[in-house]
Design a protein around this nucleic acid. Structure first.
Lengths: 219, 219
DNA sequence: AATAAAATTTAGACTAGCCTAAATTTTATT
DNA sequence: AATAAAATTTAGGCTAGTCTAAATTTTATT
Protein backbone atom coordinates (compact mmCIF):
# COMPACT_ATOMS: atom_id res chain seq x y z
CA UNK A 1 0.00 0.00 0.00
CA UNK A 2 1.13 3.52 -0.75
CA UNK A 3 0.82 5.80 2.22
CA UNK A 4 -0.17 9.40 1.97
CA UNK A 5 3.35 10.44 2.93
CA UNK A 6 5.01 8.16 0.43
CA UNK A 7 2.79 9.56 -2.32
CA UNK A 8 3.77 13.09 -1.36
CA UNK A 9 7.45 12.29 -1.57
CA UNK A 10 7.05 10.73 -5.00
CA UNK A 11 5.00 13.64 -6.25
CA UNK A 12 7.57 16.10 -4.94
CA UNK A 13 10.39 14.22 -6.65
CA UNK A 14 8.43 14.08 -9.88
CA UNK A 15 7.75 17.80 -9.85
CA UNK A 16 11.33 18.71 -9.02
CA UNK A 17 12.62 16.54 -11.83
CA UNK A 18 9.92 17.52 -14.32
CA UNK A 19 11.52 20.50 -15.95
CA UNK A 20 15.01 20.79 -14.58
CA UNK A 21 17.67 18.17 -13.98
CA UNK A 22 17.50 14.41 -14.15
CA UNK A 23 18.25 13.96 -10.46
CA UNK A 24 16.86 15.64 -7.33
CA UNK A 25 18.81 16.53 -4.21
CA UNK A 26 17.82 15.71 -0.66
CA UNK A 27 17.67 19.37 0.30
CA UNK A 28 15.41 20.24 -2.60
CA UNK A 29 12.93 17.62 -1.48
CA UNK A 30 13.13 18.74 2.15
CA UNK A 31 12.43 22.24 0.99
CA UNK A 32 9.51 21.27 -1.20
CA UNK A 33 7.65 19.22 1.37
CA UNK A 34 8.66 21.37 4.31
CA UNK A 35 10.51 18.80 6.30
CA UNK A 36 14.13 18.34 7.33
CA UNK A 37 16.89 16.81 5.21
CA UNK A 38 17.39 14.08 7.81
CA UNK A 39 13.77 13.00 7.46
CA UNK A 40 14.14 12.93 3.71
CA UNK A 41 17.22 10.72 3.93
CA UNK A 42 15.26 8.26 6.07
CA UNK A 43 12.40 8.15 3.65
CA UNK A 44 14.61 7.86 0.57
CA UNK A 45 16.04 4.65 1.97
CA UNK A 46 12.53 3.24 2.34
CA UNK A 47 11.42 4.33 -1.10
CA UNK A 48 14.52 2.77 -2.60
CA UNK A 49 13.80 -0.50 -0.77
CA UNK A 50 10.41 -0.50 -2.40
CA UNK A 51 11.95 0.12 -5.82
CA UNK A 52 10.09 3.39 -6.19
CA UNK A 53 13.21 5.51 -6.65
CA UNK A 54 16.78 5.13 -7.86
CA UNK A 55 18.97 6.16 -5.00
CA UNK A 56 22.66 6.02 -4.21
CA UNK A 57 23.78 7.72 -1.02
CA UNK A 58 24.86 11.32 -1.62
CA UNK A 59 24.07 11.06 -5.32
CA UNK A 60 20.50 12.34 -5.51
CA UNK A 61 17.41 10.46 -6.63
CA UNK A 62 15.23 9.82 -9.62
CA UNK A 63 12.00 7.88 -10.00
CA UNK A 64 11.83 4.31 -11.22
CA UNK A 65 9.04 3.58 -13.73
CA UNK A 66 7.04 2.24 -10.80
CA UNK A 67 7.59 5.41 -8.77
CA UNK A 68 6.77 7.59 -11.75
CA UNK A 69 3.51 5.75 -12.21
CA UNK A 70 2.49 6.47 -8.63
CA UNK A 71 3.49 10.13 -8.96
CA UNK A 72 1.60 10.63 -12.21
CA UNK A 73 -1.47 8.98 -10.78
CA UNK A 74 -1.45 11.41 -7.86
CA UNK A 75 -0.99 14.33 -10.23
CA UNK A 76 -3.83 13.03 -12.39
CA UNK A 77 -6.11 12.89 -9.38
CA UNK A 78 -5.01 16.29 -8.13
CA UNK A 79 -5.72 17.98 -11.45
CA UNK A 80 -9.03 16.23 -12.01
CA UNK A 81 -10.18 17.25 -8.54
CA UNK A 82 -9.11 20.85 -9.19
CA UNK A 83 -11.11 20.79 -12.38
CA UNK A 84 -14.10 19.39 -10.53
CA UNK A 85 -13.92 22.06 -7.85
CA UNK A 86 -13.77 24.87 -10.40
CA UNK A 87 -16.22 23.49 -12.94
CA UNK A 88 -18.85 22.03 -10.66
CA UNK A 89 -18.51 23.66 -7.26
CA UNK A 90 -17.78 27.30 -8.06
CA UNK A 91 -14.30 27.36 -6.61
CA UNK A 92 -11.95 30.01 -7.99
CA UNK A 93 -8.67 28.86 -9.49
CA UNK A 94 -6.74 30.29 -6.55
CA UNK A 95 -8.82 28.35 -4.00
CA UNK A 96 -8.46 24.78 -5.19
CA UNK A 97 -4.95 23.76 -4.35
CA UNK A 98 -5.17 22.87 -0.67
CA UNK A 99 -8.38 20.87 -1.00
CA UNK A 100 -7.11 19.02 -4.06
CA UNK A 101 -3.98 18.24 -2.06
CA UNK A 102 -6.21 16.24 0.29
CA UNK A 103 -8.52 14.77 -2.32
CA UNK A 104 -5.65 13.45 -4.42
CA UNK A 105 -4.99 10.78 -1.79
CA UNK A 106 -8.44 9.19 -1.91
CA UNK A 107 -8.04 5.65 -3.17
CA UNK A 108 -10.75 4.53 -5.57
CA UNK A 109 -10.27 3.82 -9.22
CA UNK A 110 -13.99 3.94 -9.82
CA UNK A 111 -14.28 7.33 -8.16
CA UNK A 112 -11.63 8.98 -10.28
CA UNK A 113 -12.92 7.34 -13.45
CA UNK A 114 -16.39 8.68 -12.71
CA UNK A 115 -15.09 12.16 -11.94
CA UNK A 116 -13.20 12.10 -15.24
CA UNK A 117 -16.38 11.11 -17.06
CA UNK A 118 -18.47 13.67 -15.15
CA UNK A 119 -16.06 16.38 -16.31
CA UNK A 120 -16.16 15.03 -19.85
CA UNK A 121 -12.53 13.90 -19.91
CA UNK A 122 -10.72 17.23 -19.62
CA UNK A 123 -7.18 17.49 -21.00
CA UNK A 124 -5.96 20.34 -18.80
CA UNK A 125 -6.74 21.59 -15.30
CA UNK A 126 -7.92 25.09 -14.31
CA UNK A 127 -4.33 26.38 -14.43
CA UNK A 128 -3.71 24.98 -17.88
CA UNK A 129 -1.59 22.09 -16.62
CA UNK A 130 -2.07 18.86 -18.57
CA UNK A 131 -3.94 16.00 -16.90
CA UNK A 132 -2.16 12.64 -17.25
CA UNK A 133 -4.36 9.86 -18.59
CA UNK A 134 -5.05 6.61 -16.71
CA UNK A 135 -1.76 5.19 -17.95
CA UNK A 136 0.21 8.23 -16.86
CA UNK A 137 0.62 9.63 -20.38
CA UNK A 138 0.98 13.37 -20.47
CA UNK A 139 0.12 15.63 -23.39
CA UNK A 140 3.35 17.58 -23.80
CA UNK A 141 3.10 21.29 -23.22
CA UNK A 142 4.29 23.29 -26.19
CA UNK A 143 3.59 26.65 -24.59
CA UNK A 144 6.39 29.04 -23.62
CA UNK A 145 6.73 31.96 -21.28
CA UNK A 146 5.30 35.24 -22.47
CA UNK A 147 8.69 36.83 -21.74
CA UNK A 148 10.16 35.00 -24.75
CA UNK A 149 8.13 36.90 -27.32
CA UNK A 150 8.45 40.20 -29.12
CA UNK A 151 6.51 43.32 -29.97
CA UNK A 152 3.63 42.58 -32.30
CA UNK A 153 3.29 38.92 -31.42
CA UNK A 154 -0.25 37.67 -30.94
CA UNK A 155 -0.60 34.92 -28.37
CA UNK A 156 -3.11 32.93 -26.34
CA UNK A 157 -2.74 32.35 -22.60
CA UNK A 158 -2.49 28.63 -21.90
CA UNK A 159 -1.13 28.41 -18.38
CA UNK A 160 0.87 29.83 -15.51
CA UNK A 161 4.21 29.01 -13.97
CA UNK A 162 3.61 30.39 -10.49
CA UNK A 163 0.48 28.81 -8.98
CA UNK A 164 0.30 30.93 -5.83
CA UNK A 165 -3.11 32.34 -4.92
CA UNK A 166 -1.54 35.81 -4.81
CA UNK A 167 -0.40 35.61 -8.42
CA UNK A 168 -3.64 34.01 -9.62
CA UNK A 169 -5.73 36.70 -7.96
CA UNK A 170 -3.55 39.35 -9.52
CA UNK A 171 -4.29 37.87 -12.94
CA UNK A 172 -8.03 37.83 -12.21
CA UNK A 173 -7.89 41.43 -11.15
CA UNK A 174 -5.99 42.37 -14.30
CA UNK A 175 -8.56 40.69 -16.49
CA UNK A 176 -6.24 37.89 -17.59
CA UNK A 177 -7.48 34.31 -17.89
CA UNK A 178 -6.73 31.11 -19.75
CA UNK A 179 -7.75 31.26 -23.40
CA UNK A 180 -7.52 35.03 -23.61
CA UNK A 181 -5.67 36.61 -26.50
CA UNK A 182 -2.68 38.83 -25.86
CA UNK A 183 -0.95 41.13 -28.30
CA UNK A 184 2.39 42.58 -27.27
CA UNK A 185 2.17 46.28 -27.98
CA UNK A 186 5.54 47.30 -26.64
CA UNK A 187 8.43 46.09 -24.56
CA UNK A 188 9.65 48.90 -22.37
CA UNK A 189 13.36 49.45 -22.75
CA UNK A 190 13.90 50.55 -19.17
CA UNK A 191 12.75 47.49 -17.19
CA UNK A 192 11.58 45.05 -19.88
CA UNK A 193 8.01 45.42 -18.72
CA UNK A 194 5.36 44.76 -21.37
CA UNK A 195 2.46 46.75 -22.63
CA UNK A 196 -0.12 44.26 -23.86
CA UNK A 197 -3.60 44.33 -25.32
CA UNK A 198 -6.07 41.79 -24.00
CA UNK A 199 -8.75 40.35 -26.29
CA UNK A 200 -8.35 43.34 -28.60
CA UNK A 201 -9.96 45.50 -25.94
CA UNK A 202 -7.98 46.61 -22.90
CA UNK A 203 -4.35 47.51 -22.65
CA UNK A 204 -2.28 46.75 -19.60
CA UNK A 205 1.29 47.00 -18.34
CA UNK A 206 2.82 43.91 -16.77
CA UNK A 207 6.24 43.50 -15.24
CA UNK A 208 8.86 41.16 -16.69
CA UNK A 209 8.40 39.02 -13.58
CA UNK A 210 4.71 38.62 -14.36
CA UNK A 211 5.39 37.93 -18.04
CA UNK A 212 7.79 35.17 -17.08
CA UNK A 213 4.99 33.48 -15.18
CA UNK A 214 2.43 33.51 -17.95
CA UNK A 215 2.52 30.67 -20.48
CA UNK A 216 1.30 31.22 -24.02
CA UNK A 217 1.18 29.74 -27.49
CA UNK A 218 1.32 31.71 -30.70
CA UNK A 219 -2.06 32.18 -32.25
CA UNK B 1 -6.35 19.34 14.98
CA UNK B 2 -8.60 16.32 14.74
CA UNK B 3 -6.78 13.40 13.27
CA UNK B 4 -8.37 10.90 11.01
CA UNK B 5 -8.10 8.29 13.75
CA UNK B 6 -9.58 10.51 16.41
CA UNK B 7 -12.54 11.27 14.17
CA UNK B 8 -13.13 7.58 13.61
CA UNK B 9 -13.21 6.88 17.33
CA UNK B 10 -15.70 9.67 17.93
CA UNK B 11 -17.89 8.51 15.07
CA UNK B 12 -17.82 4.95 16.36
CA UNK B 13 -18.79 6.08 19.85
CA UNK B 14 -21.59 8.22 18.47
CA UNK B 15 -23.00 5.36 16.43
CA UNK B 16 -22.80 2.89 19.28
CA UNK B 17 -24.58 5.27 21.61
CA UNK B 18 -27.09 6.48 19.01
CA UNK B 19 -29.86 3.98 19.56
CA UNK B 20 -28.91 1.86 22.52
CA UNK B 21 -27.44 2.77 25.87
CA UNK B 22 -26.11 6.04 27.18
CA UNK B 23 -22.59 4.73 27.61
CA UNK B 24 -20.32 2.65 25.36
CA UNK B 25 -17.90 -0.04 26.45
CA UNK B 26 -14.28 -0.34 25.44
CA UNK B 27 -14.86 -3.72 23.85
CA UNK B 28 -17.75 -2.46 21.76
CA UNK B 29 -15.53 0.26 20.34
CA UNK B 30 -12.68 -2.17 19.72
CA UNK B 31 -15.10 -4.37 17.87
CA UNK B 32 -16.54 -1.57 15.79
CA UNK B 33 -13.28 -0.12 14.58
CA UNK B 34 -11.50 -3.45 14.35
CA UNK B 35 -8.76 -2.79 16.80
CA UNK B 36 -7.81 -4.22 20.20
CA UNK B 37 -9.28 -3.21 23.54
CA UNK B 38 -5.86 -2.12 24.75
CA UNK B 39 -5.54 0.32 21.86
CA UNK B 40 -8.96 1.69 22.63
CA UNK B 41 -8.03 2.27 26.26
CA UNK B 42 -5.00 4.25 25.12
CA UNK B 43 -7.05 6.39 22.83
CA UNK B 44 -9.83 6.98 25.33
CA UNK B 45 -7.36 8.57 27.68
CA UNK B 46 -6.27 10.95 24.95
CA UNK B 47 -9.81 11.81 23.91
CA UNK B 48 -10.72 12.48 27.52
CA UNK B 49 -7.70 14.78 27.90
CA UNK B 50 -9.00 16.75 24.94
CA UNK B 51 -12.47 16.94 26.52
CA UNK B 52 -14.02 15.09 23.62
CA UNK B 53 -15.45 12.28 25.74
CA UNK B 54 -16.59 11.67 29.31
CA UNK B 55 -14.51 8.85 30.61
CA UNK B 56 -13.92 7.23 33.98
CA UNK B 57 -11.75 4.14 34.00
CA UNK B 58 -13.80 0.94 33.71
CA UNK B 59 -17.05 2.90 33.49
CA UNK B 60 -17.56 3.28 29.76
CA UNK B 61 -17.63 6.49 27.74
CA UNK B 62 -20.00 9.03 26.31
CA UNK B 63 -19.42 12.06 24.11
CA UNK B 64 -19.10 15.58 25.42
CA UNK B 65 -20.94 18.23 23.42
CA UNK B 66 -17.61 19.01 21.76
CA UNK B 67 -17.07 15.35 20.84
CA UNK B 68 -20.61 15.02 19.58
CA UNK B 69 -20.14 18.01 17.34
CA UNK B 70 -17.09 16.42 15.74
CA UNK B 71 -18.90 13.10 15.31
CA UNK B 72 -21.97 14.66 13.75
CA UNK B 73 -19.85 16.69 11.40
CA UNK B 74 -18.13 13.53 10.18
CA UNK B 75 -21.49 11.83 9.74
CA UNK B 76 -22.78 14.85 7.87
CA UNK B 77 -19.84 14.71 5.50
CA UNK B 78 -20.11 10.94 5.08
CA UNK B 79 -23.77 11.09 4.14
CA UNK B 80 -23.41 14.06 1.83
CA UNK B 81 -20.57 12.33 0.01
CA UNK B 82 -22.65 9.16 -0.32
CA UNK B 83 -25.43 11.21 -1.78
CA UNK B 84 -23.02 12.85 -4.18
CA UNK B 85 -21.64 9.51 -5.33
CA UNK B 86 -25.09 8.09 -6.00
CA UNK B 87 -26.73 11.18 -7.45
CA UNK B 88 -23.91 12.57 -9.54
CA UNK B 89 -21.46 9.77 -10.21
CA UNK B 90 -23.66 6.75 -10.87
CA UNK B 91 -22.56 4.77 -7.84
CA UNK B 92 -24.99 2.15 -6.54
CA UNK B 93 -26.12 2.42 -2.92
CA UNK B 94 -24.10 -0.66 -2.03
CA UNK B 95 -20.88 0.79 -3.47
CA UNK B 96 -20.58 4.08 -1.65
CA UNK B 97 -19.59 3.23 1.88
CA UNK B 98 -15.85 2.65 1.61
CA UNK B 99 -15.18 5.69 -0.54
CA UNK B 100 -17.32 7.92 1.68
CA UNK B 101 -15.36 6.59 4.63
CA UNK B 102 -12.29 8.22 3.09
CA UNK B 103 -13.97 11.37 1.81
CA UNK B 104 -15.54 12.16 5.18
CA UNK B 105 -12.11 13.11 6.52
CA UNK B 106 -11.40 15.83 3.98
CA UNK B 107 -11.17 19.12 5.84
CA UNK B 108 -12.78 22.04 4.04
CA UNK B 109 -15.88 23.86 5.15
CA UNK B 110 -16.28 25.44 1.76
CA UNK B 111 -16.07 22.09 0.02
CA UNK B 112 -18.82 20.49 2.04
CA UNK B 113 -21.02 23.58 1.83
CA UNK B 114 -20.67 23.54 -1.96
CA UNK B 115 -21.40 19.82 -2.17
CA UNK B 116 -24.50 20.40 -0.06
CA UNK B 117 -25.62 23.17 -2.41
CA UNK B 118 -24.75 21.12 -5.51
CA UNK B 119 -27.04 18.36 -4.22
CA UNK B 120 -29.74 20.88 -3.41
CA UNK B 121 -29.55 20.42 0.35
CA UNK B 122 -30.70 16.82 0.72
CA UNK B 123 -32.26 15.76 4.01
CA UNK B 124 -31.44 12.05 3.80
CA UNK B 125 -28.69 9.97 2.24
CA UNK B 126 -29.11 7.13 -0.29
CA UNK B 127 -29.92 4.69 2.52
CA UNK B 128 -32.58 6.93 4.02
CA UNK B 129 -30.38 8.04 6.91
CA UNK B 130 -30.87 11.67 7.92
CA UNK B 131 -28.10 14.15 7.12
CA UNK B 132 -27.18 16.39 10.08
CA UNK B 133 -27.19 20.11 9.27
CA UNK B 134 -24.14 22.36 9.67
CA UNK B 135 -24.89 22.74 13.37
CA UNK B 136 -25.20 19.00 13.90
CA UNK B 137 -28.99 19.03 14.13
CA UNK B 138 -30.61 15.79 13.03
CA UNK B 139 -34.12 15.37 11.69
CA UNK B 140 -35.45 12.63 13.95
CA UNK B 141 -36.41 9.43 12.21
CA UNK B 142 -39.98 8.41 12.86
CA UNK B 143 -39.80 5.28 10.77
CA UNK B 144 -40.01 1.82 12.29
CA UNK B 145 -39.05 -1.67 11.27
CA UNK B 146 -41.37 -3.40 8.82
CA UNK B 147 -41.51 -6.32 11.26
CA UNK B 148 -43.65 -4.21 13.60
CA UNK B 149 -46.62 -4.02 11.28
CA UNK B 150 -49.62 -6.22 10.52
CA UNK B 151 -51.51 -7.73 7.63
CA UNK B 152 -53.19 -5.11 5.52
CA UNK B 153 -50.91 -2.25 6.52
CA UNK B 154 -49.76 0.01 3.68
CA UNK B 155 -46.30 1.45 4.14
CA UNK B 156 -43.51 3.32 2.39
CA UNK B 157 -39.88 2.23 2.56
CA UNK B 158 -37.76 4.97 4.14
CA UNK B 159 -34.55 3.25 5.10
CA UNK B 160 -32.59 0.19 6.08
CA UNK B 161 -31.04 -1.02 9.30
CA UNK B 162 -28.36 -3.28 7.85
CA UNK B 163 -26.17 -1.32 5.42
CA UNK B 164 -24.12 -4.24 4.12
CA UNK B 165 -23.64 -4.43 0.36
CA UNK B 166 -25.01 -7.99 0.46
CA UNK B 167 -28.31 -6.87 1.95
CA UNK B 168 -28.59 -3.82 -0.27
CA UNK B 169 -27.99 -5.88 -3.40
CA UNK B 170 -30.61 -8.35 -2.24
CA UNK B 171 -33.11 -5.50 -2.00
CA UNK B 172 -32.20 -4.29 -5.48
CA UNK B 173 -32.67 -7.76 -6.85
CA UNK B 174 -36.04 -8.07 -5.13
CA UNK B 175 -37.22 -4.81 -6.62
CA UNK B 176 -37.27 -2.97 -3.31
CA UNK B 177 -36.05 0.62 -3.04
CA UNK B 178 -36.54 3.74 -0.94
CA UNK B 179 -39.87 5.40 -1.55
CA UNK B 180 -41.57 2.24 -2.75
CA UNK B 181 -44.97 1.31 -1.36
CA UNK B 182 -45.43 -1.98 0.47
CA UNK B 183 -48.69 -3.64 1.42
CA UNK B 184 -48.50 -6.55 3.83
CA UNK B 185 -50.61 -9.30 2.29
CA UNK B 186 -49.99 -11.97 4.85
CA UNK B 187 -47.76 -12.88 7.76
CA UNK B 188 -46.93 -16.55 7.57
CA UNK B 189 -47.73 -18.31 10.81
CA UNK B 190 -44.91 -20.81 10.49
CA UNK B 191 -41.82 -18.55 10.41
CA UNK B 192 -43.25 -15.02 10.57
CA UNK B 193 -42.12 -14.39 7.02
CA UNK B 194 -44.13 -11.79 5.11
CA UNK B 195 -45.89 -11.85 1.81
CA UNK B 196 -45.88 -8.28 0.54
CA UNK B 197 -47.05 -6.41 -2.53
CA UNK B 198 -44.67 -3.83 -3.98
CA UNK B 199 -46.05 -0.71 -5.65
CA UNK B 200 -49.39 -2.46 -6.18
CA UNK B 201 -47.72 -4.67 -8.76
CA UNK B 202 -45.48 -7.54 -7.70
CA UNK B 203 -45.83 -9.80 -4.72
CA UNK B 204 -42.85 -11.15 -2.84
CA UNK B 205 -42.00 -13.23 0.21
CA UNK B 206 -39.43 -11.85 2.62
CA UNK B 207 -38.07 -13.43 5.77
CA UNK B 208 -38.63 -11.94 9.22
CA UNK B 209 -34.90 -11.17 9.27
CA UNK B 210 -35.24 -9.11 6.12
CA UNK B 211 -38.39 -7.37 7.40
CA UNK B 212 -36.55 -6.37 10.56
CA UNK B 213 -33.95 -4.59 8.44
CA UNK B 214 -36.37 -2.56 6.36
CA UNK B 215 -37.56 0.75 7.79
CA UNK B 216 -40.96 2.13 6.85
CA UNK B 217 -43.56 4.76 7.66
CA UNK B 218 -47.29 4.25 7.38
CA UNK B 219 -48.70 5.80 4.27
C1' DA C 1 46.19 19.24 -3.54
C1' DA C 2 44.59 20.80 0.81
C1' DT C 3 41.15 22.71 3.31
C1' DA C 4 36.78 25.02 4.14
C1' DA C 5 31.98 25.00 3.31
C1' DA C 6 27.90 22.82 2.08
C1' DA C 7 25.19 18.82 1.60
C1' DT C 8 23.93 14.52 3.22
C1' DT C 9 23.60 10.71 6.22
C1' DT C 10 23.59 8.44 10.76
C1' DA C 11 22.55 8.15 15.63
C1' DG C 12 19.43 8.58 18.99
C1' DA C 13 15.13 10.32 20.60
C1' DC C 14 10.19 11.62 20.18
C1' DT C 15 4.87 10.98 19.08
C1' DA C 16 0.76 8.66 17.41
C1' DG C 17 -1.32 4.40 17.15
C1' DC C 18 -1.08 -0.12 17.36
C1' DC C 19 0.04 -4.75 19.53
C1' DT C 20 0.63 -8.85 23.24
C1' DA C 21 0.87 -10.24 27.80
C1' DA C 22 0.19 -9.34 32.48
C1' DA C 23 -2.25 -6.95 36.13
C1' DT C 24 -6.37 -4.99 37.86
C1' DT C 25 -11.25 -4.10 38.31
C1' DT C 26 -15.96 -5.23 37.56
C1' DT C 27 -19.65 -8.52 36.97
C1' DA C 28 -21.65 -12.96 37.32
C1' DT C 29 -22.12 -17.29 39.60
C1' DT C 30 -21.98 -20.22 43.13
C1' DA D 1 -19.88 -13.25 50.50
C1' DA D 2 -16.41 -15.63 48.01
C1' DT D 3 -14.71 -16.87 43.84
C1' DA D 4 -14.62 -17.40 38.82
C1' DA D 5 -15.10 -15.19 34.52
C1' DA D 6 -15.15 -11.31 31.74
C1' DA D 7 -13.86 -6.71 30.80
C1' DT D 8 -10.60 -3.25 31.12
C1' DT D 9 -6.30 -1.10 31.91
C1' DT D 10 -1.24 -0.95 32.32
C1' DA D 11 3.37 -2.18 30.95
C1' DG D 12 6.45 -2.64 27.54
C1' DG D 13 7.40 -2.93 22.63
C1' DC D 14 6.77 -2.05 17.60
C1' DT D 15 6.49 0.95 13.15
C1' DA D 16 6.08 5.18 10.46
C1' DG D 17 7.52 9.43 10.25
C1' DT D 18 9.51 13.29 12.35
C1' DC D 19 13.35 15.97 14.74
C1' DT D 20 18.24 17.72 16.51
C1' DA D 21 22.96 17.05 16.81
C1' DA D 22 26.94 14.77 15.31
C1' DA D 23 29.50 12.40 11.75
C1' DT D 24 30.57 11.76 7.04
C1' DT D 25 30.92 12.79 2.16
C1' DT D 26 30.95 15.85 -1.66
C1' DT D 27 31.92 20.30 -3.69
C1' DA D 28 34.02 24.64 -3.88
C1' DT D 29 37.85 27.58 -2.86
C1' DT D 30 42.20 28.63 -1.98
Amino acid sequence: MNSHTEENYLKAIYKLIEHDTDVVTTNAIADKIKTKAASVSDMLKKLADKKLINYQKYQGVSLTPKGQKVALNIIRKHRLWEMFLVEKLDFKWDEVHDVAEQLEHIHSDKLIAEIDKFLNYPKVDPHGDPIPDVNGKLQLQKSKSLSNFSTGDILVITGVVDHSPAFLRYLDKSGLALGFEIKIKEIIEFDKSLQIMINKKNTLFISLEVAKNILVITK
